[in-house]
């Protein structure tokens, strides 16, 4: 599966469009990580635990989008975008969407 943030795949022609595909996941913060983060927050800098947590979550959202596209018979997802929104206290939704296409 080819993913791009462009309106196509460079060097390849789009032969079929399947429309929008999306994937999302809702994650809550880990208590242990939260405690570490509060300590780290005193001195500032990167909160590595959170970076990883959100990275994993975004990967999962992307994988769900890819699964959606595979089911349709696509071999690429173009113009991929990411979005984040908070659903409830301490929980965030990570969202990925794009257009499923078939390229040569």
């Amino acid at each position: 599966m080819i993913l791009t943030t462009l309106e196509g795949v460079p060097g390849r022609r789009i032969v079929r469009h399947f429309g929008l595909v999306q994937g999302s996941t809702v994650r809550a913060k880990h208590v242990g990580r939260d405690l570490m983060a509060s300590l780290q927050n005193l001195v500032g800098g990167e909160l590595q635990g959170y970076t990883e947590l959100l990275q994993e979550a975004r990967e999962e959202a992307t994988n769900r989008m890819i699964k959606d596209a595979t089911r349709m018979g696509a071999n690429a997802v173009v113009n991929v975008r990411f979005a984040t929104s908070s659903v409830a206290q301490g929980a965030a939704e990570l969202f990925a969407y794009g257009t499923a296409v078939v390229v040569e």
Partner: peptide, 12 residues
């Protein structure tokens, strides 16, 4: 072509 993502959580 391939998509690349860079991310960071940074605190004050």
């Amino acid at each position: 072509a391939q998509m690349f993502i860079g991310s960071v959580v940074i605190s004050s």
